[in-house]
């Protein structure tokens, strides 16, 4: 019972913040996606103790643990791009892999290979 109310409170908060973020972005005509604003709002509300970690930790923990799952249906959408992949697949693949390797190296080099003292 307590678990159920925790889940409904947590999920409602996360849905609410996502909707609020989208509303703010639409109203102020910002060039920032609503979900990101929702994420920042959650961080701020946690820091100011308006939202307590206990309220959302189960639902937020579950959603982030299975984050990969929510991308699968979108990834299946790649099958409708068979034509594009035939025409531009190889250069697209090269551009993706090269940029991934460069971005990864730059990030890792700046952040520190083995961590500084830590």
């Amino acid at each position: 019972m307590q678990l159920l109310s925790k889940w409904s409170i947590g999920l409602s908060l996360l849905f609410g913040l996502s909707a609020l973020g989208n509303w703010i972005v639409a109203t102020l005509a910002w060039n920032v996606p609503g979900n990101v604003i929702g994420m920042v709002l959650l961080l701020v509300l946690l820091l100011t103790n308006v939202i307590r970690v206990e309220w959302i930790e189960d639902s937020a923990g579950f959603l982030t643990k299975h984050l990969a799952f929510f991308f699968i249906p979108i990834a299946v959408g790649l099958m409708s791009y068979g034509g594009l992949l035939k025409a531009e697949g190889i250069p697209l693949f090269i551009a993706l892999v090269t940029s991934l390797a460069v971005g990864l190296t730059v990030t890792a080099l700046i952040a520190g290979k083995r961590g500084d003292a830590s």
Binding site: G21, V53, I56
Partner: peptide, 15 residues
């Protein structure tokens, strides 16, 4: 659920 899941990342960010 992808919207709330993205918002949920505020929690590890906080922690």
């Amino acid at each position: 659920l992808l919207g709330p899941a993205t918002v949920a990342l505020g929690l590890p960010l906080y922690r």
